[in-house]
């Protein structure tokens, strides 16, 4: 039960840090990283939510696991795309 709260707090903190970083900026790379931290927080929250039934002796909620997996795929590809764009912008700046 305690560990659940620890994870929830951790997730909230991550989301908060991430959101702050996105808001504050100002560098684009920093914003991209902050978005990832925020995403990690949300996934942690979802995984923790999935863990709740285990405390009552039931199997973990597999729907949430599936969602997190989908979310990770989306997040990874979005980050890759953002980094590629950033790369183009920086390259142009150099030339």
């Amino acid at each position: 039960m305690l560990s659940l709260y620890v994870y929830f707090t951790l997730a909230t903190l991550l989301i908060g840090f991430g959101a702050y970083g996105v808001w504050r900026g100002p560098e684009l790379l920093r914003r991209i990283l902050a978005l990832n931290i925020m995403g990690a927080g949300i996934f942690l929250l979802m995984v923790t939510l999935a863990y709740r039934p285990v405390l009552q002796g039931e199997p973990a909620d597999s729907v949430l696991h599936a969602l997190v997996l989908t979310g990770l795929v989306v997040a990874v590809s979005a980050t890759a795309f953002a980094l590629a764009l950033l790369g183009r912008i920086l390259q142009k700046g150099k030339a």
């Binding site: 996105v22 914003r31 978005l35 925020m38 795309f81 953002a82 764009l85 912008i89």
Partner: peptide, 21 residues
């Protein structure tokens, strides 16, 4: 268009994360 596009992407990702949360 790269810079507006990246801004668009960041806004869009942040928005999706809010929605997802």
């Amino acid at each position: 268009a790269m810079r507006p596009a990246l801004h668009y992407l960041l806004f869009s990702l942040f928005a999706s994360l809010c929605y997802l949360l």
